[in-house]
Design a protein around this nucleic acid. Structure first.
Lengths: 203, 203
DNA sequence: TAGATTGTTAATCGATTAACAATC
DNA sequence: TAGATTGTTAATCGATTAACAATC
Protein backbone atom coordinates (compact mmCIF):
# COMPACT_ATOMS: atom_id res chain seq x y z
CA UNK A 1 0.00 0.00 0.00
CA UNK A 2 2.85 2.39 -0.75
CA UNK A 3 1.44 5.52 -2.31
CA UNK A 4 3.35 8.42 -3.72
CA UNK A 5 1.88 10.93 -1.32
CA UNK A 6 4.53 12.88 0.59
CA UNK A 7 4.39 11.99 4.26
CA UNK A 8 3.86 15.61 5.12
CA UNK A 9 0.66 15.67 3.08
CA UNK A 10 -0.40 12.43 4.70
CA UNK A 11 0.05 14.08 8.09
CA UNK A 12 -2.41 16.77 7.15
CA UNK A 13 -5.19 14.41 6.12
CA UNK A 14 -6.37 13.74 9.69
CA UNK A 15 -6.49 17.50 10.24
CA UNK A 16 -8.81 17.95 7.28
CA UNK A 17 -10.82 14.97 8.43
CA UNK A 18 -11.31 16.30 11.93
CA UNK A 19 -12.30 19.69 10.62
CA UNK A 20 -14.75 18.33 8.05
CA UNK A 21 -16.37 16.12 10.66
CA UNK A 22 -16.77 19.08 12.98
CA UNK A 23 -18.83 21.05 10.45
CA UNK A 24 -22.58 21.17 10.93
CA UNK A 25 -24.56 18.44 9.17
CA UNK A 26 -26.34 21.04 7.09
CA UNK A 27 -23.21 22.07 5.19
CA UNK A 28 -23.35 20.02 2.03
CA UNK A 29 -20.51 21.72 0.19
CA UNK A 30 -17.18 23.12 1.27
CA UNK A 31 -14.53 24.88 -0.80
CA UNK A 32 -10.78 24.47 -0.52
CA UNK A 33 -10.63 28.18 0.28
CA UNK A 34 -12.94 27.76 3.24
CA UNK A 35 -10.95 24.80 4.55
CA UNK A 36 -7.72 26.69 4.09
CA UNK A 37 -9.04 29.76 5.91
CA UNK A 38 -10.34 27.69 8.82
CA UNK A 39 -7.08 25.79 9.23
CA UNK A 40 -4.72 28.63 8.43
CA UNK A 41 -3.11 27.17 5.36
CA UNK A 42 -2.84 27.88 1.63
CA UNK A 43 -5.77 26.85 -0.52
CA UNK A 44 -3.67 25.33 -3.29
CA UNK A 45 -2.02 23.13 -0.71
CA UNK A 46 -5.42 21.96 0.47
CA UNK A 47 -6.46 21.07 -3.07
CA UNK A 48 -3.23 19.23 -3.73
CA UNK A 49 -3.50 17.26 -0.52
CA UNK A 50 -7.10 16.36 -1.19
CA UNK A 51 -6.27 15.34 -4.75
CA UNK A 52 -4.10 12.53 -3.37
CA UNK A 53 -7.18 10.96 -1.85
CA UNK A 54 -8.73 10.93 -5.35
CA UNK A 55 -11.56 13.04 -4.13
CA UNK A 56 -12.56 15.73 -6.54
CA UNK A 57 -14.51 18.93 -6.26
CA UNK A 58 -16.69 20.76 -8.67
CA UNK A 59 -15.72 24.19 -9.95
CA UNK A 60 -17.95 26.88 -8.55
CA UNK A 61 -19.40 24.76 -5.72
CA UNK A 62 -16.45 23.05 -4.08
CA UNK A 63 -16.36 19.60 -2.55
CA UNK A 64 -19.23 17.54 -1.21
CA UNK A 65 -18.39 17.34 2.46
CA UNK A 66 -19.63 13.79 2.97
CA UNK A 67 -17.75 12.53 -0.08
CA UNK A 68 -14.60 14.23 1.06
CA UNK A 69 -14.83 12.65 4.49
CA UNK A 70 -15.42 9.26 2.92
CA UNK A 71 -12.50 9.67 0.52
CA UNK A 72 -10.05 10.67 3.26
CA UNK A 73 -11.21 7.85 5.50
CA UNK A 74 -10.87 5.40 2.66
CA UNK A 75 -7.42 6.72 1.80
CA UNK A 76 -6.25 6.52 5.41
CA UNK A 77 -7.67 3.03 5.69
CA UNK A 78 -10.07 3.89 8.49
CA UNK A 79 -12.40 1.21 7.20
CA UNK A 80 -9.80 -1.52 7.49
CA UNK A 81 -9.63 -2.96 10.97
CA UNK A 82 -6.09 -2.96 12.32
CA UNK A 83 -4.92 -4.54 15.53
CA UNK A 84 -2.25 -2.98 17.69
CA UNK A 85 -0.47 -4.01 20.85
CA UNK A 86 0.79 -1.70 23.55
CA UNK A 87 3.91 -2.31 25.58
CA UNK A 88 4.47 -0.52 28.88
CA UNK A 89 1.46 -0.06 31.11
CA UNK A 90 2.71 2.95 33.07
CA UNK A 91 0.89 6.23 33.31
CA UNK A 92 1.01 7.02 29.62
CA UNK A 93 0.37 3.44 28.54
CA UNK A 94 -2.64 3.20 30.80
CA UNK A 95 -4.03 6.45 29.47
CA UNK A 96 -3.70 5.24 25.90
CA UNK A 97 -5.41 1.96 26.75
CA UNK A 98 -8.38 3.90 28.04
CA UNK A 99 -8.38 6.38 25.18
CA UNK A 100 -11.19 5.90 22.70
CA UNK A 101 -9.72 7.95 19.89
CA UNK A 102 -8.06 5.15 17.93
CA UNK A 103 -11.30 3.60 16.75
CA UNK A 104 -12.10 6.37 14.31
CA UNK A 105 -9.07 5.26 12.33
CA UNK A 106 -10.04 1.60 12.52
CA UNK A 107 -7.36 0.83 15.05
CA UNK A 108 -7.95 -1.44 18.01
CA UNK A 109 -5.45 -1.95 20.80
CA UNK A 110 -6.09 -5.59 21.53
CA UNK A 111 -3.74 -6.37 24.39
CA UNK A 112 -1.14 -4.73 26.58
CA UNK A 113 2.16 -5.95 27.93
CA UNK A 114 4.35 -5.13 30.87
CA UNK A 115 7.22 -6.69 32.74
CA UNK A 116 5.86 -5.79 36.19
CA UNK A 117 4.30 -8.90 37.84
CA UNK A 118 1.99 -6.58 39.77
CA UNK A 119 0.38 -5.45 36.54
CA UNK A 120 0.30 -8.76 34.71
CA UNK A 121 -3.15 -10.27 34.84
CA UNK A 122 -4.92 -6.99 35.45
CA UNK A 123 -7.20 -5.19 33.03
CA UNK A 124 -6.69 -1.57 31.99
CA UNK A 125 -9.17 0.24 29.80
CA UNK A 126 -10.86 -3.08 29.16
CA UNK A 127 -7.65 -4.62 27.86
CA UNK A 128 -5.80 -7.51 29.44
CA UNK A 129 -2.24 -6.88 30.58
CA UNK A 130 0.10 -9.79 29.93
CA UNK A 131 3.76 -10.51 30.51
CA UNK A 132 6.34 -9.47 27.98
CA UNK A 133 7.06 -13.12 27.30
CA UNK A 134 3.65 -13.49 25.69
CA UNK A 135 4.22 -10.59 23.32
CA UNK A 136 5.36 -12.58 20.30
CA UNK A 137 2.52 -15.06 20.47
CA UNK A 138 -0.06 -12.29 20.86
CA UNK A 139 1.30 -10.35 17.90
CA UNK A 140 0.98 -13.52 15.92
CA UNK A 141 -2.45 -14.46 17.20
CA UNK A 142 -3.97 -11.07 16.45
CA UNK A 143 -1.98 -10.37 13.32
CA UNK A 144 -0.96 -7.10 14.90
CA UNK A 145 1.20 -5.04 12.57
CA UNK A 146 1.18 -2.01 14.86
CA UNK A 147 2.67 -1.44 18.29
CA UNK A 148 2.85 1.38 20.77
CA UNK A 149 5.98 1.50 22.89
CA UNK A 150 5.44 3.30 26.19
CA UNK A 151 8.20 1.77 28.29
CA UNK A 152 11.08 3.63 29.95
CA UNK A 153 13.91 4.66 27.64
CA UNK A 154 16.28 1.97 28.90
CA UNK A 155 13.87 -0.81 28.00
CA UNK A 156 12.69 0.52 24.65
CA UNK A 157 15.32 -0.98 22.35
CA UNK A 158 14.83 -4.44 23.74
CA UNK A 159 11.07 -4.14 23.31
CA UNK A 160 11.60 -2.87 19.79
CA UNK A 161 13.79 -5.86 18.93
CA UNK A 162 11.16 -8.21 20.26
CA UNK A 163 8.37 -6.49 18.36
CA UNK A 164 10.32 -6.50 15.11
CA UNK A 165 11.13 -10.17 15.56
CA UNK A 166 7.47 -10.88 16.22
CA UNK A 167 6.36 -9.42 12.92
CA UNK A 168 5.25 -5.92 13.90
CA UNK A 169 5.74 -3.52 10.96
CA UNK A 170 5.00 -0.14 12.53
CA UNK A 171 6.08 1.18 15.93
CA UNK A 172 4.92 4.37 17.58
CA UNK A 173 7.57 5.07 20.17
CA UNK A 174 7.08 7.35 23.17
CA UNK A 175 10.45 6.64 24.75
CA UNK A 176 13.07 9.35 24.20
CA UNK A 177 15.48 7.07 22.34
CA UNK A 178 16.14 6.56 18.67
CA UNK A 179 15.20 2.94 18.08
CA UNK A 180 17.21 0.76 15.73
CA UNK A 181 14.90 -1.45 13.72
CA UNK A 182 15.10 -3.39 10.46
CA UNK A 183 14.33 -1.45 7.27
CA UNK A 184 11.04 -3.27 7.00
CA UNK A 185 9.82 -1.76 10.25
CA UNK A 186 8.66 1.85 10.29
CA UNK A 187 9.31 3.73 13.52
CA UNK A 188 7.81 7.09 14.39
CA UNK A 189 8.48 8.93 17.63
CA UNK A 190 6.47 11.12 19.95
CA UNK A 191 8.45 12.87 22.65
CA UNK A 192 6.03 14.98 24.67
CA UNK A 193 8.66 16.63 26.85
CA UNK A 194 10.81 17.51 23.85
CA UNK A 195 7.77 18.92 22.04
CA UNK A 196 7.02 21.19 24.96
CA UNK A 197 10.66 22.23 25.20
CA UNK A 198 10.75 23.10 21.50
CA UNK A 199 7.58 25.10 21.93
CA UNK A 200 9.12 26.94 24.85
CA UNK A 201 12.23 27.76 22.89
CA UNK A 202 10.10 29.37 20.15
CA UNK A 203 8.70 31.93 22.55
CA UNK B 1 14.50 34.87 21.84
CA UNK B 2 13.67 34.41 18.16
CA UNK B 3 16.55 32.69 16.48
CA UNK B 4 16.98 31.98 12.80
CA UNK B 5 17.15 28.24 13.24
CA UNK B 6 14.61 26.38 11.11
CA UNK B 7 12.05 24.72 13.33
CA UNK B 8 12.88 21.37 11.79
CA UNK B 9 16.47 21.70 12.98
CA UNK B 10 15.22 22.74 16.39
CA UNK B 11 13.16 19.58 16.53
CA UNK B 12 16.26 17.50 16.07
CA UNK B 13 18.21 19.06 18.92
CA UNK B 14 16.49 17.00 21.63
CA UNK B 15 17.29 13.88 19.60
CA UNK B 16 20.98 14.74 19.59
CA UNK B 17 20.77 15.63 23.25
CA UNK B 18 19.21 12.33 24.25
CA UNK B 19 21.74 10.42 22.22
CA UNK B 20 24.73 12.30 23.58
CA UNK B 21 23.53 11.82 27.13
CA UNK B 22 23.13 8.10 26.54
CA UNK B 23 26.79 7.67 25.61
CA UNK B 24 29.15 6.21 28.20
CA UNK B 25 30.89 8.74 30.44
CA UNK B 26 34.24 7.64 29.12
CA UNK B 27 33.60 8.95 25.61
CA UNK B 28 35.16 12.38 25.62
CA UNK B 29 34.88 13.09 21.89
CA UNK B 30 32.26 12.34 19.32
CA UNK B 31 32.29 13.08 15.59
CA UNK B 32 29.36 14.26 13.50
CA UNK B 33 29.79 11.13 11.44
CA UNK B 34 29.34 8.92 14.49
CA UNK B 35 26.24 10.82 15.58
CA UNK B 36 24.82 10.65 12.08
CA UNK B 37 25.44 6.93 11.83
CA UNK B 38 23.84 6.26 15.20
CA UNK B 39 20.75 8.29 14.42
CA UNK B 40 20.44 7.39 10.77
CA UNK B 41 20.92 10.82 9.31
CA UNK B 42 23.38 12.69 7.09
CA UNK B 43 26.53 13.94 8.75
CA UNK B 44 26.44 17.38 7.11
CA UNK B 45 22.97 17.84 8.49
CA UNK B 46 24.23 17.01 11.95
CA UNK B 47 27.02 19.56 11.68
CA UNK B 48 24.66 22.23 10.41
CA UNK B 49 22.18 21.60 13.19
CA UNK B 50 24.90 21.64 15.82
CA UNK B 51 26.35 24.85 14.40
CA UNK B 52 23.11 26.66 15.30
CA UNK B 53 23.82 25.99 18.95
CA UNK B 54 27.18 27.73 18.47
CA UNK B 55 28.98 24.63 19.54
CA UNK B 56 32.03 23.89 17.48
CA UNK B 57 34.13 20.84 16.93
CA UNK B 58 37.76 20.36 16.19
CA UNK B 59 38.91 18.91 12.88
CA UNK B 60 40.33 15.45 13.27
CA UNK B 61 38.86 14.83 16.75
CA UNK B 62 35.25 15.93 16.59
CA UNK B 63 33.18 17.52 19.32
CA UNK B 64 33.71 17.36 23.06
CA UNK B 65 30.67 15.46 24.20
CA UNK B 66 30.16 17.38 27.44
CA UNK B 67 30.51 20.73 25.67
CA UNK B 68 28.04 19.68 23.03
CA UNK B 69 25.49 18.63 25.63
CA UNK B 70 25.96 21.91 27.46
CA UNK B 71 25.62 23.93 24.26
CA UNK B 72 22.40 22.19 23.21
CA UNK B 73 20.93 22.53 26.68
CA UNK B 74 21.84 26.18 26.74
CA UNK B 75 20.38 26.72 23.31
CA UNK B 76 17.15 24.95 24.21
CA UNK B 77 16.96 26.91 27.43
CA UNK B 78 17.04 23.86 29.67
CA UNK B 79 18.73 25.95 32.31
CA UNK B 80 15.95 28.49 32.44
CA UNK B 81 13.14 27.41 34.70
CA UNK B 82 9.79 27.60 32.96
CA UNK B 83 6.41 27.09 34.55
CA UNK B 84 3.58 25.37 32.75
CA UNK B 85 -0.04 24.66 33.57
CA UNK B 86 -2.01 21.66 32.46
CA UNK B 87 -5.70 21.72 31.66
CA UNK B 88 -7.74 18.53 31.57
CA UNK B 89 -6.97 15.95 34.21
CA UNK B 90 -8.28 12.91 32.35
CA UNK B 91 -6.23 9.84 31.60
CA UNK B 92 -3.67 11.59 29.48
CA UNK B 93 -3.52 14.70 31.65
CA UNK B 94 -2.99 12.60 34.76
CA UNK B 95 -0.23 10.65 33.06
CA UNK B 96 1.55 13.85 32.08
CA UNK B 97 1.25 15.23 35.60
CA UNK B 98 3.03 12.17 36.89
CA UNK B 99 5.62 12.14 34.12
CA UNK B 100 9.07 13.21 35.20
CA UNK B 101 10.48 13.90 31.75
CA UNK B 102 9.82 17.63 31.59
CA UNK B 103 12.40 18.56 34.18
CA UNK B 104 15.35 17.83 31.94
CA UNK B 105 14.23 20.75 29.80
CA UNK B 106 13.73 23.01 32.80
CA UNK B 107 9.96 22.77 32.59
CA UNK B 108 7.79 22.42 35.66
CA UNK B 109 4.06 21.76 35.53
CA UNK B 110 2.99 23.77 38.52
CA UNK B 111 -0.75 23.24 38.69
CA UNK B 112 -3.54 21.42 36.91
CA UNK B 113 -7.08 22.42 36.07
CA UNK B 114 -10.30 20.62 35.38
CA UNK B 115 -13.99 21.40 35.27
CA UNK B 116 -15.03 18.22 37.06
CA UNK B 117 -15.91 19.00 40.72
CA UNK B 118 -14.89 15.46 41.62
CA UNK B 119 -11.34 16.18 40.59
CA UNK B 120 -11.02 19.71 41.92
CA UNK B 121 -9.14 19.74 45.17
CA UNK B 122 -7.37 16.46 44.56
CA UNK B 123 -3.67 16.01 43.91
CA UNK B 124 -2.30 14.17 40.88
CA UNK B 125 1.38 13.50 40.44
CA UNK B 126 2.02 15.82 43.36
CA UNK B 127 0.20 18.68 41.65
CA UNK B 128 -2.96 20.35 42.91
CA UNK B 129 -6.01 20.19 40.68
CA UNK B 130 -8.06 23.38 40.66
CA UNK B 131 -11.20 24.58 38.96
CA UNK B 132 -11.02 26.14 35.53
CA UNK B 133 -12.14 29.44 37.05
CA UNK B 134 -8.80 29.72 38.83
CA UNK B 135 -6.81 29.26 35.64
CA UNK B 136 -6.20 32.90 34.84
CA UNK B 137 -5.04 33.81 38.31
CA UNK B 138 -2.70 30.81 38.46
CA UNK B 139 -1.15 31.61 35.09
CA UNK B 140 -0.53 35.06 36.44
CA UNK B 141 0.74 33.98 39.82
CA UNK B 142 3.28 31.53 38.38
CA UNK B 143 4.14 33.55 35.30
CA UNK B 144 3.33 30.48 33.27
CA UNK B 145 3.95 31.03 29.57
CA UNK B 146 3.32 27.41 28.68
CA UNK B 147 0.20 25.29 28.82
CA UNK B 148 -0.74 21.73 27.99
CA UNK B 149 -4.29 21.21 26.78
CA UNK B 150 -5.57 17.70 27.41
CA UNK B 151 -9.31 18.29 27.47
CA UNK B 152 -11.89 16.72 25.12
CA UNK B 153 -12.04 18.23 21.63
CA UNK B 154 -15.29 20.09 22.27
CA UNK B 155 -13.82 21.98 25.21
CA UNK B 156 -10.43 22.76 23.73
CA UNK B 157 -11.17 26.04 21.94
CA UNK B 158 -12.73 27.56 25.03
CA UNK B 159 -9.74 26.53 27.12
CA UNK B 160 -7.43 27.95 24.47
CA UNK B 161 -9.25 31.28 24.54
CA UNK B 162 -8.97 31.42 28.29
CA UNK B 163 -5.27 30.55 28.24
CA UNK B 164 -4.51 33.13 25.58
CA UNK B 165 -6.42 35.77 27.53
CA UNK B 166 -4.51 34.82 30.67
CA UNK B 167 -1.15 35.48 29.07
CA UNK B 168 0.01 32.02 28.03
CA UNK B 169 2.27 32.22 24.97
CA UNK B 170 2.70 28.58 24.01
CA UNK B 171 0.12 25.82 23.95
CA UNK B 172 0.75 22.13 23.43
CA UNK B 173 -2.61 20.77 22.36
CA UNK B 174 -3.56 17.09 22.53
CA UNK B 175 -7.16 17.60 21.43
CA UNK B 176 -7.85 16.73 17.80
CA UNK B 177 -8.96 20.22 16.84
CA UNK B 178 -7.16 23.07 15.15
CA UNK B 179 -7.15 25.79 17.76
CA UNK B 180 -7.63 29.41 16.80
CA UNK B 181 -5.34 31.61 18.84
CA UNK B 182 -3.88 35.11 18.53
CA UNK B 183 -0.71 35.46 16.46
CA UNK B 184 1.24 36.03 19.63
CA UNK B 185 0.38 32.55 20.89
CA UNK B 186 2.20 29.56 19.43
CA UNK B 187 0.18 26.37 19.21
CA UNK B 188 1.59 22.94 18.47
CA UNK B 189 -0.46 19.79 18.27
CA UNK B 190 0.05 16.18 19.20
CA UNK B 191 -2.60 13.79 17.98
CA UNK B 192 -1.64 10.32 19.09
CA UNK B 193 -4.43 8.52 17.28
CA UNK B 194 -3.72 10.35 14.04
CA UNK B 195 0.00 9.58 14.40
CA UNK B 196 -0.74 5.89 14.71
CA UNK B 197 -3.15 6.03 11.78
CA UNK B 198 -0.53 7.72 9.61
CA UNK B 199 1.98 5.09 10.61
CA UNK B 200 -0.50 2.37 9.71
CA UNK B 201 -1.13 3.87 6.32
CA UNK B 202 2.60 3.81 5.54
CA UNK B 203 2.76 0.04 5.89
C1' DT C 1 53.48 15.38 7.13
C1' DA C 2 49.21 12.80 6.08
C1' DG C 3 44.73 11.96 7.16
C1' DA C 4 40.49 12.68 9.46
C1' DT C 5 37.12 15.80 10.45
C1' DT C 6 35.03 20.36 10.57
C1' DG C 7 32.57 24.24 8.47
C1' DT C 8 31.01 26.51 4.30
C1' DT C 9 29.62 27.22 -0.36
C1' DA C 10 27.24 25.36 -4.34
C1' DA C 11 24.06 21.93 -6.23
C1' DT C 12 20.13 19.16 -5.68
C1' DC C 13 15.91 17.86 -4.13
C1' DG C 14 11.28 18.38 -2.51
C1' DA C 15 7.46 21.11 -0.91
C1' DT C 16 4.75 25.29 -1.20
C1' DT C 17 2.95 29.00 -3.69
C1' DA C 18 1.75 31.63 -7.84
C1' DA C 19 -0.29 31.81 -12.25
C1' DC C 20 -3.75 30.36 -15.15
C1' DA C 21 -6.57 27.48 -18.10
C1' DA C 22 -10.64 24.47 -17.56
C1' DT C 23 -15.34 24.15 -16.14
C1' DC C 24 -19.64 24.15 -13.90
C1' DT D 1 -23.05 34.52 -19.83
C1' DA D 2 -20.10 35.85 -15.89
C1' DG D 3 -17.95 34.50 -11.96
C1' DA D 4 -16.33 31.32 -8.61
C1' DT D 5 -13.76 27.48 -7.89
C1' DT D 6 -11.10 23.45 -9.29
C1' DG D 7 -6.89 21.19 -10.98
C1' DT D 8 -2.42 21.64 -13.14
C1' DT D 9 1.82 23.59 -14.71
C1' DA D 10 5.58 26.74 -13.71
C1' DA D 11 8.08 29.52 -10.32
C1' DT D 12 9.68 30.07 -5.79
C1' DC D 13 11.23 28.87 -1.55
C1' DG D 14 13.53 26.18 1.87
C1' DA D 15 15.90 22.10 3.41
C1' DT D 16 19.20 18.46 2.49
C1' DT D 17 23.13 16.75 0.32
C1' DA D 18 27.46 17.06 -2.30
C1' DA D 19 31.83 19.09 -2.96
C1' DC D 20 35.73 20.99 -1.05
C1' DA D 21 38.81 24.13 1.31
C1' DA D 22 40.47 24.84 6.06
C1' DT D 23 42.71 22.89 9.98
C1' DC D 24 44.21 20.30 13.80
Amino acid sequence: MTRDIPEISLQRLPIYLNYLKSLPEGDKYISSGAIAAALGMGEVLVRKDLAYTSSSGRPKVGYVRAELIAAIEEYLGCNKKKNAVLVGVGGLGSALLSYGGFSKYGIDIVEAFDSDPEKIGTTVGGKAVRGDDELASAVNKYGALLAIVAVPAVAAQQVCDCLAASGVKGILNFAPVQLKAPESVVVRNIDVAASLAILASLL
